[in-house]
């Protein structure tokens, strides 16, 4: 932790007179900071509480009141009536697809970053620039072209289309490149080579043991980048049993009258609390990841170029 983040006690006393000077200003700054924090929390809070209530309670009681723990269980039970419990399948798909993406993306990106930092290969600059371009273009920009391609290789409506496409991880490759080139001095590789290490051993014996923090970062960003992804899976997968949770949630909007007044009454007991519960299943894992990895987020998104 650098001094910029945590000022030393000496600094505290030095700047004190200045702070007193602008007490009114500080009051407004703090008031605004807290106000914005409240606004930030309310939507998530509503979502989490909504699933604990019954549908009539959602409008009759305070929107931020807690229903009961049993409410969550009831909502989950009711969701099972939708298409013979397909929700369980969606949860499983989300978990499996994302696990595959996180593993493939983390391994390929870490290896690529290592090679680019440690090996003398041609086209290194071309490679880095194409990685950066891919990293800065919004992923949705290529969805239609990707569909055209997946259609030709007959992978449409196959989970592997989503898994493979999402495993391309240019941000991860760049992050690994920065990480390895700043934590491992080239001399270390040289002397290991003289000692008879193969290139694979350079990775497995030198780079990998120093990669703990990097692999955590890579897995974290791969997960939060893909867990709630909608557009690409929406285009690639069309069978209900292949849906992920976000697609399933969209499908619930579409096929139940819970929030779409245009849909007539159905026989399944899917109302707002049930839909809210499906939403929680998507939002909560990401929120937890964010809260426990705040530092990772800052550090990673500035591509390791700033102080922690």
């Amino acid at each position: 932790m650098s001094t910029a983040v945590a000022p030393s006690p000496k600094n505290e006393t030095k700047v004190k007179p200045l702070r007193q000077e602008s007490r009114v200003g500080m009051f407004f700054v703090n008031a605004w900071l807290i106000f914005f924090a409240v606004i930030s929390i309310v939507p998530m809070l509503w979502l989490v509480l909504a699933a604990s209530k019954t549908d009539p309670e959602l409008s009759s009681r305070n929107p931020l009141a807690f229903g009961s723990l049993k409410g969550y269980w009831n909502a989950w039970q009711n969701l099972q009536f939708f298409d013979n419990g397909v929700i369980g399948r969606w949860v499983l798909n989300s978990v499996l697809f994302n696990a595959a993406i996180v593993i493939i993306a983390t391994i390929t990106a870490s290896l690529a970053g290592f090679v680019i930092s440690a090996a003398k290969i041609r086209f290194k600059r071309t490679f880095l620039i194409s990685t950066l371009i891919m990293m800065l273009i919004p992923p949705v920009a290529l969805v239609i072209p990707l569909f055209v391609m997946m259609d030709k290789v007959k992978l449409v409506d196959n989970p592997w289309s989503v898994i493979l496409i999402s495993s391309l991880y240019p941000f991860g490759a760049f992050l690994s490149y920065i990480y390895y080139s700043t934590t491992i001095p080239p001399e270390l590789y040289e002397s290991a080579r003289l000692d008879g290490c193969s290139d694979w051993q350079l990775y497995s014996r030198i780079a990998l043991p120093l990669s703990g923090a990097l692999l955590g970062l890579l897995a974290f960003f791969a997960f939060i980048g893909n867990w709630a992804n909608y557009f690409m899976p929406y285009v690639m997968l069309y069978s209900g049993e292949n849906y992920t949770l976000p697609l399933g949630l969209g499908f619930l909007f579409y096929s139940t009258p819970a929030i779409n007044p245009g849909i007539g009454a159905t026989s399944v007991p899917i109302y707002k609390p049930e839909i809210a519960l499906a939403g929680i299943l998507i939002a909560l894992p990401i929120m937890i990841m964010f809260l426990v990895s705040q530092k990772r987020l800052i550090r990673g998104m500035l591509a390791g170029s700033i102080k922690e």
Binding site: S40, W46, A228, L249, I275, G279, I282
Partner: peptide, 27 residues
């Protein structure tokens, strides 16, 4: 607190904002 809304994205964001802008159940 500021990072929390980032977990409400895509389909979930549509759901939550639908609720926020629905006067009968809005927080």
């Amino acid at each position: 607190a500021y990072i929390i809304p980032a977990s409400v994205s895509g389909a979930v964001a549509v759901l939550v904002w639908w609720a926020i802008l629905e006067p009968t159940i809005s927080p």
